[in-house]
Design a protein around this nucleic acid. Sequence first.
DNA 1: TTTCTTATTGAACGACTGTTCAGTTTTATG
DNA 2: CATAAAACTGAACAGTCGTTCAATAAGAAA
Lengths: 207, 207
Amino acid sequence: MTETPKFRRQAPDARKKDLVKATIRCLEKKGSDGLSVRSISSEAGISVGLINHHYPSKDDLIADAYEKLATDILQNVVDIVAETNGSPREKMSAFFKAYFSSIVLDQKFLRIWIVFWHMSDKSEQVRLSHDKTNAGFRQQIELMLRDLVKSSETPEFNYRLAAIGLSGMLDGLWLEWCLNPDVFSPEEGLMLCEGWVDGLMAGAFKL
Amino acid sequence: MTETPKFRRQAPDARKKDLVKATIRCLEKKGSDGLSVRSISSEAGISVGLINHHYPSKDDLIADAYEKLATDILQNVVDIVAETNGSPREKMSAFFKAYFSSIVLDQKFLRIWIVFWHMSDKSEQVRLSHDKTNAGFRQQIELMLRDLVKSSETPEFNYRLAAIGLSGMLDGLWLEWCLNPDVFSPEEGLMLCEGWVDGLMAGAFKL
DNA sequence: TTTCTTATTGAACGACTGTTCAGTTTTATG
DNA sequence: CATAAAACTGAACAGTCGTTCAATAAGAAA
């Protein structure tokens, strides 16, 4: 007579992936209130103690979740842009469209970022995840901007700085929309980004 | 023989002002860790119970602190702009300069906003304070933009939307600088805002 | 089948949280 | 000077939190 096992073992890497996924689900469901070891372990279907078995501290798990989520979204958007046929300017529009689509611009989804930003101030591990993923994000924007200049009569400008500006406006609009979606519509956010690039091409950030 | 009193009574309004000030000092000193009733009451030199005597809940005190801080800063910057002699465009530059000065652009100071944003997601009272003060902030920007159009050949644009865009970029830049001040300098942030307005005047957000 | 490694459990711990409330003390008023 | 209103105290309460660790059990290796 074979007993049903009380739990199933997993290799550390597989278990860690489970925990990261559970962490993100918790954030989506309950915001920062979901970020307790008890909430996460319950969501993952494991005991409280297991988190500290696989991670030195809870913050390390959260940092992993940050990195996973940010990387996935960036990849997602990069893919969409890559699939877009057209000029660099049109690819840029596709990029904006993806970012202001309901997939990314979801209140429950965006508030995760506020939690992460908040944690960046409290946890060194999360701060490092932020730095890393944000640099990757700006780099992608920079690439698009370079293509833009090559393909048109857009005047030269400081790519690094322009990427920071655009990235900053995107973050700021996300933030505001997340805190109060009644102030402006996703379509209006899109228009603002398009206008920003038009200003850039018109020479607003000329060297 | 007169005994030294164990505590001094204050009128509710005066005490509440003290508590708001103590809350802001706690935030500056310890970030979100300073936002406990024990931390605040200690900073204010009163007992834990007094907070709930004057406020229905801790969140109401924090919402008051949010409003006080945001209103003060806005007033401060508005004053600086009012004292500036020159064209609307020059006043706008004075506005940016004030916002990227070391008074506002201080890491310990900016991170307070992240805490407030984070709390907006958790507390209805704080959310209302955010909505109110943010609307006032955007309104000030809108006023400056209207003056800009009146005084120059700047093409007409959607004032409301433009104010949202500029406000969004300012928030985003604050956020990024606060999370990692090594990515760009205050001077570079200033340049980005100037460029944004130049783009606006060049017709990037034309109707 | 037995042995051994280690993933997993869950109670326990100590520290913290916001709120309550009975009792105390100040201070203005009669 | 007596009285009454209410500002104020601080212990107590019922939670929460992340981490620890001895005990347990799964499952691969011998």
